[in-house]
Protein backbone atom coordinates (compact mmCIF):
# COMPACT_ATOMS: atom_id res chain seq x y z
CA UNK A 1 0.00 0.00 0.00
CA UNK A 2 1.53 3.27 -1.11
CA UNK A 3 0.85 6.36 0.96
CA UNK A 4 -1.37 9.14 -0.40
CA UNK A 5 0.16 11.80 -2.64
CA UNK A 6 -1.94 14.46 -1.01
CA UNK A 7 -3.33 14.29 2.45
CA UNK A 8 -5.52 17.14 3.68
CA UNK A 9 -6.21 17.29 7.39
CA UNK A 10 -8.73 19.50 9.18
CA UNK A 11 -8.53 22.36 6.67
CA UNK A 12 -10.34 25.52 7.78
CA UNK A 13 -10.54 28.54 5.47
CA UNK A 14 -12.40 31.77 6.10
CA UNK A 15 -13.04 34.98 4.22
CA UNK A 16 -13.12 38.27 6.03
CA UNK A 17 -15.27 41.16 4.88
CA UNK A 18 -17.17 44.04 6.45
CA UNK A 19 -19.97 41.60 7.19
CA UNK A 20 -17.58 39.55 9.31
CA UNK A 21 -16.04 36.13 8.94
CA UNK A 22 -17.43 33.75 6.37
CA UNK A 23 -16.35 30.21 7.22
CA UNK A 24 -16.14 28.70 3.78
CA UNK A 25 -14.31 25.51 4.77
CA UNK A 26 -14.77 24.08 8.26
CA UNK A 27 -12.47 21.18 8.94
CA UNK A 28 -12.09 19.15 5.77
CA UNK A 29 -9.93 16.05 5.60
CA UNK A 30 -9.34 13.65 2.71
CA UNK A 31 -6.59 11.73 0.95
CA UNK A 32 -5.68 11.40 -2.69
CA UNK A 33 -3.78 8.27 -3.67
CA UNK A 34 -1.23 8.43 -6.51
CA UNK A 35 -2.74 7.88 -9.94
CA UNK A 36 -6.30 7.89 -8.64
CA UNK A 37 -9.13 10.18 -9.57
CA UNK A 38 -10.91 11.66 -6.61
CA UNK A 39 -14.23 13.40 -7.07
CA UNK A 40 -15.40 16.21 -4.84
CA UNK A 41 -19.14 16.82 -5.22
CA UNK A 42 -21.26 19.56 -3.77
CA UNK A 43 -23.60 22.44 -4.54
CA UNK A 44 -22.18 25.87 -5.23
CA UNK A 45 -21.11 27.40 -1.94
CA UNK A 46 -20.35 24.03 -0.37
CA UNK A 47 -16.68 24.96 -0.13
CA UNK A 48 -15.34 22.52 -2.71
CA UNK A 49 -13.54 25.08 -4.86
CA UNK A 50 -12.26 26.98 -1.83
CA UNK A 51 -10.77 23.72 -0.54
CA UNK A 52 -8.75 23.33 -3.70
CA UNK A 53 -7.74 26.99 -3.90
CA UNK A 54 -6.57 26.63 -0.32
CA UNK A 55 -4.40 23.65 -1.24
CA UNK A 56 -2.83 25.77 -3.99
CA UNK A 57 -2.75 28.79 -1.68
CA UNK A 58 -4.40 30.95 -4.34
CA UNK A 59 -7.14 32.48 -2.21
CA UNK A 60 -8.38 36.02 -2.83
CA UNK A 61 -6.79 38.73 -0.72
CA UNK A 62 -9.43 38.54 2.02
CA UNK A 63 -9.25 34.75 2.37
CA UNK A 64 -7.14 33.01 5.00
CA UNK A 65 -6.28 29.42 5.81
CA UNK A 66 -6.94 29.29 9.54
CA UNK A 67 -5.69 25.83 10.36
CA UNK A 68 -4.99 22.38 9.01
CA UNK A 69 -2.30 20.82 6.90
CA UNK A 70 -1.94 19.59 3.36
CA UNK A 71 0.81 17.01 3.03
CA UNK A 72 1.95 16.75 -0.56
CA UNK A 73 4.75 14.29 -1.17
CA UNK A 74 5.49 14.46 2.54
CA UNK A 75 5.75 18.28 2.64
CA UNK A 76 3.13 20.45 4.30
CA UNK A 77 2.05 22.92 1.62
CA UNK A 78 0.89 25.39 4.23
CA UNK A 79 4.38 25.59 5.70
CA UNK A 80 6.29 26.24 2.45
CA UNK A 81 7.42 29.77 1.72
CA UNK A 82 5.97 31.62 -1.24
CA UNK A 83 8.95 30.86 -3.52
CA UNK A 84 8.80 27.13 -2.89
CA UNK A 85 5.06 27.22 -3.41
CA UNK A 86 5.50 29.00 -6.75
CA UNK A 87 7.98 26.35 -7.89
CA UNK A 88 5.34 23.76 -7.10
CA UNK A 89 2.39 25.40 -8.84
CA UNK A 90 2.07 24.49 -12.47
CA UNK A 91 4.92 22.02 -11.96
CA UNK A 92 3.94 19.36 -9.42
CA UNK A 93 0.38 20.55 -8.90
CA UNK A 94 -1.51 21.94 -11.87
CA UNK A 95 -5.01 23.26 -12.13
CA UNK A 96 -7.79 23.64 -14.68
CA UNK A 97 -10.54 26.14 -14.07
CA UNK A 98 -14.21 26.14 -14.80
CA UNK A 99 -14.55 28.75 -17.50
CA UNK A 100 -12.07 28.42 -20.37
CA UNK A 101 -13.51 31.65 -21.82
CA UNK A 102 -12.06 33.74 -19.02
CA UNK A 103 -9.19 31.61 -17.75
CA UNK A 104 -6.95 32.24 -20.73
CA UNK A 105 -5.33 35.61 -21.23
CA UNK A 106 -7.09 37.17 -24.24
CA UNK A 107 -4.08 39.22 -25.34
CA UNK A 108 -1.48 36.45 -25.54
CA UNK A 109 -1.34 33.60 -28.07
CA UNK A 110 -2.24 30.23 -26.62
CA UNK A 111 1.21 29.00 -27.62
CA UNK A 112 2.86 31.70 -25.58
CA UNK A 113 0.72 30.84 -22.59
CA UNK A 114 1.78 27.19 -22.72
CA UNK A 115 5.41 27.96 -23.50
CA UNK A 116 5.80 30.42 -20.63
CA UNK A 117 4.66 27.72 -18.20
CA UNK A 118 7.23 25.27 -19.54
CA UNK A 119 10.01 27.83 -19.48
CA UNK A 120 9.10 28.77 -15.93
CA UNK A 121 9.69 25.25 -14.60
CA UNK A 122 12.04 23.53 -17.05
CA UNK A 123 15.53 24.39 -18.22
CA UNK A 124 14.72 24.37 -21.90
CA UNK A 125 15.40 26.66 -24.83
CA UNK A 126 12.48 28.47 -26.34
CA UNK A 127 12.56 26.20 -29.37
CA UNK A 128 12.49 23.09 -27.19
CA UNK A 129 9.63 24.51 -25.18
CA UNK A 130 7.79 25.23 -28.38
CA UNK A 131 8.34 21.66 -29.54
CA UNK A 132 6.97 20.45 -26.21
CA UNK A 133 3.93 22.70 -26.59
CA UNK A 134 3.22 21.16 -29.99
CA UNK A 135 3.46 17.67 -28.48
CA UNK A 136 1.07 18.73 -25.72
CA UNK A 137 -1.41 20.13 -28.22
CA UNK A 138 -1.27 16.83 -30.08
CA UNK A 139 -1.70 14.99 -26.81
CA UNK A 140 -4.93 16.81 -26.05
CA UNK A 141 -5.93 16.40 -29.73
CA UNK A 142 -5.97 19.96 -30.93
CA UNK A 143 -5.93 19.65 -34.73
CA UNK A 144 -3.04 21.24 -36.68
CA UNK A 145 -1.19 21.87 -33.46
CA UNK A 146 1.75 23.77 -34.91
CA UNK A 147 -0.40 26.37 -36.62
CA UNK A 148 -2.74 26.77 -33.67
CA UNK A 149 0.09 27.84 -31.36
CA UNK A 150 -0.11 31.29 -32.91
CA UNK A 151 -3.84 31.67 -32.36
CA UNK A 152 -5.45 33.80 -29.71
CA UNK A 153 -7.97 32.35 -27.24
CA UNK A 154 -10.92 34.08 -28.89
CA UNK A 155 -10.20 32.17 -32.07
CA UNK A 156 -11.03 28.85 -30.32
CA UNK A 157 -14.30 27.26 -29.35
CA UNK A 158 -15.02 26.57 -25.69
CA UNK A 159 -14.06 22.92 -25.89
CA UNK A 160 -10.81 23.72 -27.71
CA UNK A 161 -9.95 26.32 -25.13
CA UNK A 162 -10.44 23.80 -22.37
CA UNK A 163 -8.07 21.50 -24.28
CA UNK A 164 -5.54 24.33 -24.28
CA UNK A 165 -6.03 24.69 -20.53
CA UNK A 166 -5.43 20.97 -20.12
CA UNK A 167 -2.32 21.09 -22.30
CA UNK A 168 -1.05 23.99 -20.20
CA UNK A 169 -1.76 22.11 -16.98
CA UNK A 170 0.03 19.00 -18.24
CA UNK A 171 3.04 20.86 -19.56
CA UNK A 172 5.30 19.94 -16.65
CA UNK A 173 4.00 16.43 -15.93
CA UNK A 174 2.24 17.27 -12.68
CA UNK A 175 1.81 14.62 -10.03
CA UNK A 176 -1.53 16.11 -9.10
CA UNK A 177 -4.03 17.82 -11.33
CA UNK A 178 -6.90 19.76 -9.83
CA UNK A 179 -9.81 20.17 -12.24
CA UNK A 180 -12.30 22.66 -10.88
CA UNK A 181 -15.59 22.02 -12.69
CA UNK A 182 -13.75 21.59 -16.00
CA UNK A 183 -16.89 20.78 -17.99
CA UNK A 184 -19.53 23.01 -16.39
CA UNK A 185 -19.19 25.91 -18.81
CA UNK A 186 -19.16 23.70 -21.91
CA UNK A 187 -21.83 22.38 -24.24
CA UNK A 188 -23.26 19.05 -23.15
CA UNK A 189 -21.79 17.24 -26.15
CA UNK A 190 -18.35 18.69 -25.50
CA UNK A 191 -18.51 17.96 -21.76
CA UNK A 192 -18.22 14.23 -22.32
CA UNK A 193 -15.30 14.54 -24.75
CA UNK A 194 -13.33 16.62 -22.31
CA UNK A 195 -14.14 14.29 -19.43
CA UNK A 196 -13.06 11.22 -21.37
CA UNK A 197 -9.90 13.01 -22.44
CA UNK A 198 -9.12 13.78 -18.81
CA UNK A 199 -9.74 10.20 -17.75
CA UNK A 200 -7.61 8.85 -20.57
CA UNK A 201 -4.73 11.22 -19.84
CA UNK A 202 -4.96 10.42 -16.13
CA UNK A 203 -4.51 6.70 -16.69
CA UNK A 204 -1.94 7.19 -19.42
CA UNK A 205 0.23 9.64 -17.51
CA UNK A 206 -0.39 8.04 -14.14
CA UNK A 207 -1.16 11.26 -12.30
CA UNK A 208 -3.59 11.89 -9.49
CA UNK A 209 -6.60 14.04 -10.31
CA UNK A 210 -9.03 15.88 -8.07
CA UNK A 211 -12.19 16.45 -10.05
CA UNK A 212 -14.48 19.05 -8.56
CA UNK A 213 -18.03 19.05 -9.82
CA UNK A 214 -21.64 19.43 -8.87
CA UNK A 215 -22.61 16.83 -11.43
CA UNK A 216 -22.92 13.34 -10.00
CA UNK A 217 -23.19 11.83 -13.46
CA UNK A 218 -19.71 13.11 -14.25
CA UNK A 219 -18.33 11.64 -11.05
CA UNK A 220 -19.82 8.19 -11.36
CA UNK A 221 -18.19 7.56 -14.69
CA UNK A 222 -14.60 8.48 -14.08
CA UNK A 223 -13.66 8.69 -10.41
CA UNK A 224 -12.43 6.11 -7.93
CA UNK A 225 -13.32 7.82 -4.68
CA UNK A 226 -15.84 10.48 -3.82
CA UNK A 227 -15.97 13.21 -1.24
CA UNK A 228 -19.41 14.79 -0.79
CA UNK A 229 -19.24 18.30 0.62
CA UNK A 230 -21.92 20.48 2.15
CA UNK A 231 -21.73 23.64 4.25
CA UNK A 232 -17.93 23.65 4.19
CA UNK A 233 -17.65 20.11 5.53
CA UNK A 234 -17.29 16.55 4.27
CA UNK A 235 -20.71 14.93 4.55
CA UNK A 236 -19.80 11.55 3.24
CA UNK A 237 -16.86 9.95 1.56
CA UNK A 238 -15.98 6.61 0.18
CA UNK A 239 -15.51 4.33 -2.76
CA UNK A 240 -17.55 5.36 -5.77
CA UNK A 241 -19.24 1.97 -6.14
CA UNK A 242 -20.34 1.72 -2.51
CA UNK A 243 -21.40 5.29 -2.33
CA UNK A 244 -23.65 5.06 -5.34
CA UNK A 245 -25.02 1.66 -4.32
CA UNK A 246 -25.80 2.53 -0.73
CA UNK A 247 -25.52 6.21 0.10
CA UNK A 248 -25.64 6.60 3.88
CA UNK A 249 -26.07 10.32 4.30
CA UNK A 250 -29.51 11.84 3.61
CA UNK A 251 -27.79 14.60 1.61
CA UNK A 252 -26.09 12.14 -0.71
CA UNK A 253 -29.37 10.31 -1.02
CA UNK A 254 -31.06 13.58 -1.88
CA UNK A 255 -28.41 14.32 -4.52
CA UNK A 256 -28.85 10.94 -6.12
CA UNK A 257 -32.62 11.27 -6.11
CA UNK A 258 -32.27 14.54 -7.99
CA UNK A 259 -30.29 12.96 -10.86
CA UNK A 260 -32.34 11.69 -13.80
CA UNK A 261 -31.73 8.09 -14.71
CA UNK A 262 -32.40 7.28 -18.35
CA UNK A 263 -32.60 3.55 -17.69
CA UNK A 264 -35.36 4.13 -15.20
CA UNK A 265 -38.66 3.57 -16.97
CA UNK A 266 -40.95 3.80 -13.95
CA UNK A 267 -41.65 7.47 -14.74
CA UNK A 268 -41.47 8.64 -11.17
CA UNK A 269 -40.66 12.30 -10.63
CA UNK A 270 -37.22 13.57 -9.76
CA UNK A 271 -37.08 14.70 -6.17
CA UNK A 272 -35.40 18.04 -5.60
CA UNK A 273 -33.90 18.87 -2.21
CA UNK A 274 -36.01 21.66 -0.70
CA UNK A 275 -34.42 24.81 0.76
CA UNK A 276 -31.01 26.37 0.13
CA UNK A 277 -27.48 25.95 1.57
CA UNK A 278 -26.67 27.57 4.92
CA UNK A 279 -25.30 31.09 5.27
CA UNK A 280 -21.64 30.51 6.04
CA UNK A 281 -21.34 33.82 7.83
CA UNK A 282 -23.56 32.32 10.52
CA UNK A 283 -23.10 28.55 10.20
CA UNK A 284 -25.51 26.44 12.22
CA UNK A 285 -24.22 24.74 15.35
CA UNK A 286 -25.48 21.32 14.43
CA UNK A 287 -25.50 19.47 11.13
CA UNK A 288 -25.48 22.03 8.28
CA UNK A 289 -27.95 19.90 6.35
CA UNK A 290 -30.44 19.67 9.22
CA UNK A 291 -32.79 22.44 7.98
CA UNK A 292 -33.26 20.63 4.67
CA UNK A 293 -33.09 17.04 5.85
CA UNK A 294 -36.26 14.92 5.86
CA UNK A 295 -35.14 13.01 8.98
CA UNK A 296 -33.97 15.83 11.27
CA UNK A 297 -33.90 14.91 14.96
CA UNK A 298 -33.37 17.03 18.06
CA UNK A 299 -29.77 15.80 18.19
CA UNK A 300 -29.09 17.06 14.64
CA UNK A 301 -29.60 20.73 15.49
CA UNK A 302 -27.96 20.36 18.90
CA UNK A 303 -24.57 19.03 17.91
CA UNK A 304 -22.39 18.54 14.88
CA UNK A 305 -22.36 14.88 13.93
CA UNK A 306 -18.92 13.26 13.66
CA UNK A 307 -17.96 11.07 10.70
CA UNK A 308 -19.36 7.62 11.35
CA UNK A 309 -17.27 5.44 9.12
CA UNK A 310 -17.39 7.93 6.25
CA UNK A 311 -20.83 9.51 6.78
CA UNK A 312 -21.39 12.60 8.89
CA UNK A 313 -24.90 11.82 10.13
CA UNK A 314 -26.35 11.12 13.54
CA UNK A 315 -28.46 8.37 12.05
CA UNK A 316 -25.26 6.37 11.70
CA UNK A 317 -24.82 6.45 15.49
CA UNK A 318 -25.26 2.95 16.91
CA UNK A 319 -28.04 4.15 19.21
CA UNK A 320 -29.91 6.07 16.54
CA UNK A 321 -33.44 4.99 15.68
CA UNK A 322 -33.83 3.01 12.50
CA UNK A 323 -35.10 4.96 9.51
CA UNK A 324 -36.03 3.04 6.43
CA UNK A 325 -33.84 3.82 3.47
CA UNK A 326 -31.20 5.64 5.52
CA UNK A 327 -29.64 3.42 8.13
CA UNK A 328 -31.94 0.46 7.61
CA UNK A 329 -31.21 -0.80 4.18
CA UNK A 330 -33.46 -3.07 2.28
CA UNK A 331 -31.93 -6.52 1.93
CA UNK A 332 -29.59 -6.63 -1.01
Amino acid sequence: MIGPILSVRDLRTSFFSQRGEVQAVRGVSFDVAPAEMLGIVGESGSGKSITCMSILRLLKANGRIKSGEALFDGRDLFKLDEDEMRDLRGNDIAVIFQDPMTSLNPTLTVGEQVIETILRHRRLTRAQARQRAIELFELVRIPSATARLKSYPHEFSGGMRQRVMIAMALSCDPKLLIADEPTTALDVTIQRQILMLLKELQTRLGMAVILITHDLGVIAEVTDHIVVMYGGMVMEQGNVRDLFARPRHPYTQGLLAAVPDLRDDTHHRLTPIPGSPPDMAHPPEGCPFAPRCPHTMQQCVAAMPPLFDGARCWLQHPEAPRVAGVNELEPA
Binding site: L56, L58, R86, D87, L88, R89, G90, N91, A94, V95, F97, D99, T102, S103, L104, N105, P106, T107, L108, E116, T117, R120, H121, M165, M168
Partner: peptide, 29 residues
Amino acid sequence: EQDYMTTARAKGLRPGQVLFKHGLRNSLI
Protein backbone atom coordinates in the same frame (compact mmCIF):
# COMPACT_ATOMS: atom_id res chain seq x y z
CA GLU B 1 -10.02 40.05 -10.45
CA GLN B 2 -9.89 38.25 -13.78
CA ASP B 3 -9.72 34.47 -13.96
CA TYR B 4 -6.68 34.49 -16.21
CA MET B 5 -4.72 36.25 -13.50
CA THR B 6 -5.47 33.32 -11.21
CA THR B 7 -4.40 31.00 -14.04
CA ALA B 8 -1.13 32.89 -14.35
CA ARG B 9 -0.48 32.51 -10.63
CA ALA B 10 -1.57 28.88 -10.71
CA LYS B 11 1.10 28.26 -13.33
CA GLY B 12 3.68 29.31 -10.79
CA LEU B 13 4.69 32.47 -12.67
CA ARG B 14 6.65 35.02 -10.65
CA PRO B 15 4.83 38.13 -9.39
CA GLY B 16 6.69 40.29 -11.88
CA GLN B 17 5.65 38.08 -14.79
CA VAL B 18 2.08 38.00 -13.56
CA LEU B 19 1.90 41.76 -13.20
CA PHE B 20 3.72 42.91 -16.30
CA LYS B 21 2.98 40.20 -18.83
CA HIS B 22 -0.57 39.29 -17.85
CA GLY B 23 -1.88 42.20 -15.83
CA LEU B 24 -0.48 45.32 -17.37
CA ARG B 25 -1.10 44.65 -21.01
CA ASN B 26 -4.78 44.01 -20.48
CA SER B 27 -5.34 46.89 -18.13
CA LEU B 28 -3.53 49.29 -20.44
CA ILE B 29 -6.12 48.82 -23.17
